[in-house]
């Protein structure tokens, strides 16, 4: 059973994937996200950290046995169990399909839309409208897939649900107001099923769906 | 043993990953990349295709048993064998680490640098200079890792090598001229070891490293 330390800054949705996976697998995970254990911007610039994690990025994982991993999907995979990874090559590849889908199709437009509402990026009306259209495409693909399914792969939670749900947390908390998410009921049902699982709730706390689409925060 | 059809346009580096994996695993793979089997921009817009592959993107895989997959990493994983995927959870997560590294750290700057030289996108001097710096960082991380290793994970070729090498083909063919790649000899040695493996060569043909950095093609 994997055991070790996850270095990250607090509330990092990329780190959430590994933390939730550990809740399901029982892997003993210490989270180093605040001083003195870890200070983002300092610890990850030290030679000792860079020697283990040459990109200097978080999340980064160091096993009690010294085994080091970077890239959030790799860490979440390592801290998972067979149920989460997929128990057959077919299921494993379907899990990987949705993990890739989250990174390739959800994160870019979700960030382009949400970041300006958090005040951490310049607002650009055209970019935001384009991002909204991309998010609608993502939601309709997921809504179709989830029309006949409770979870994305097989009959129970897998890394596919953990990865896709974590990539959508900020969308649901910040901008997917009721009228926007109304055409995609299967996705909202699936998302709430996931975040209300005890293993998700232990890590995420209460995830409140937004009532009003956040606008650009000057 | 997986068997089926890979839909793609010709010379698609994302499809190369699956094709090379199949060469190692022995999976029987038909490639549909030209008419009448497949016409990019038409076939992938038909209702039949979109029903199986809702994003309408390629590469897309359909098994002889009807099993459908999209996302190139998932397809390559499905067509692999245990040797390529990693034979332990540790090795599997290291493979996934480098597969994610290719998508997250290599593809963005490689596209920003190479696309304008292929006439795919407008040239932007600042974006190109920034991309060059990011590619240097990627090359130095790989050069350090490969200082004591022949391959990225374990002692033999894995999906890590296949994914990272395929993500760098355009860089080496188009812009990594001798003076640029000189500080990273371990990476060039590793890259040439990979592309000269018979399983790579069957799919890629001869991969010639560029002598002169291609400039913007107006």
């Amino acid at each position: 059973m994997a055991a070790g330390t996850l270095y990250t800054y607090p509330e990092n949705w990329r780190a959430f994937k590994a933390q939730i996976a550990a809740q399901y697998s029982g892997a003993r995970l210490k989270v180093a996200s605040s001083a003195p254990a870890f200070t983002f911007g300092q610890t990850n610039r030290t030679p000792a950290f860079l020697n283990n994690f040459p990109l200097g990025k978080v999340p980064a994982f160091q096993g009690d046995d010294g085994f080091c991993l970077f890239e959030s999907n790799a860490i979440a995979h390592y801290l998972s169990n067979e149920a989460l990874r997929g128990s057959s090559p077919q299921a494993q590849s379907q899990v990987l399909q949705w993990v890739s889908f989250a990174d390739a199709e959800i994160i870019p437009p979700a960030s382009a839309w949400v970041f300006p509402t958090l005040g951490i990026m310049q607002f650009n009306k055209q970019a935001t409208e384009q991002a909204k259209e991309e998010v609608k495409k993502v939601l309709s693909v997921l809504n179709h897939h989830l029309n006949t399914r409770t979870f994305l792969v097989g009959e129970r939670v897998s890394l596919a649900d953990i990865s896709v749900a974590c990539s959508m947390i900020w969308l649901y908390k910040q901008v997917l107001e009721p009228s926007f998410r109304q055409p995609f009921p299967n996705v909202t049902r699936w998302f709430q099923t996931c975040v209300n699982q005890p293993q998700f709730k232990t890590v995420l706390g209460e995830v409140k769906l937004c009532d009003k689409m956040a606008q650009f925060d000057p | 043993m997986a068997a089926g059809t890979l839909y793609t346009y010709p010379e698609n580096w994302r499809a190369f990953k699956a094709q090379i994996a199949a060469q190692y695993s022995g999976a029987r793979l038909k490639v549909a990349s030209s008419a009448p089997a497949f016409t990019f921009g038409q076939t992938n817009r038909t209702p039949a295709f979109l029903n199986n592959f809702p994003l309408g993107k390629v590469p897309a895989f359909q098994g002889d048993d009807g099993f459908c997959l999209f996302e190139s990493n998932a397809i390559a994983h499905y067509l692999s064998n245990e040797a390529l995927r990693g034979s332990s959870p540790q090795a599997q997560s290291q493979v996934l680490q480098w597969v994610s590294f290719a998508d997250a750290e290599i593809i963005p700057p490689a596209s920003a640098w190479v696309f304008p030289t292929l006439g795919i996108m407008q040239f932007n001097k600042q974006a190109t200079e920034q991309a060059k710096e990011e590619v240097k960082k990627v090359l130095s991380v790989l050069n350090h890792h490969l200082n004591t290793r022949t391959f990225l994970v374990g002692e033999r070729v894995s999906l890590a090598d296949i994914s990272v090498a395929c993500s760098m083909i355009w860089l080496y063919k188009q812009v990594l001229e001798p003076s640029f790649r000189q500080p990273f000899p371990n990476v060039t040695r590793w890259f040439q070891t990979c592309v000269n493996q018979p399983q790579f060569k069957t799919v890629l043909g001869e991969v010639k490293l560029c002598d002169k950095m291609a400039q913007f093609d107006p």
Binding site: Y9, E11, P108, P109, I120, Q130 | Y9, P108, M121
Partner: peptide
């Protein structure tokens, strides 16, 4: 967390690159 997000490197332009690549290969084919 918001302050940390600024450091996240996200490929915001990915959809634009995907479209450009798609157009290019559709034209070739």
């Amino acid at each position: 967390a918001v302050d940390y997000f600024v450091q996240e490197k996200i490929w915001f332009d990915k959809p634009r690159y995907d479209d450009a690549e798609r157009h290019f290969y559709e034209r070739i084919n």
